[in-house]
């Protein structure tokens, strides 16, 4: 997972994908490659895209921070969030 720091930027169309979509595309791509449905030239492009998809997914998984905030209403009735602890 640490290799992501040196990796090139994730293409914009992939960055827009949700985790679920990116994972689905990655799996489709791997299956196509494994079944030899892709030509050599396309295979390299596919590999690069697959690597970007994987990086994107990994990024989404890495940001797994736990944070809990409590909503309180201001005097004017607008909500505000304050960090809180549960336990």
């Amino acid at each position: 997972m640490s290799e992501a720091t040196a990796s090139p930027a994730i293409p914009e169309d992939i960055a827009k994908l949700s985790f679920e979509e990116a994972l689905g595309q990655l799996e489709t791509l791997v299956r196509q490659l494994e079944q030899g449905q892709v030509g050599l030239d396309d295979a390299i492009a596919s590999y690069e895209r697959g690597a970007a998809l994987k990086r994107h997914c990994a990024d989404k998984l890495r940001t797994a921070e736990e944070r809990i905030e409590k909503i309180t209403l201001n005097a004017d009735g607008r909500p505000a969030a304050t960090p809180t602890e549960i336990e």
Partner: peptide, 10 residues
């Protein structure tokens, strides 16, 4: 499972 950002509305 997967720590996430949580907003609690009490």
């Amino acid at each position: 499972r997967f720590p996430r950002r949580v907003l609690l509305w009490p």
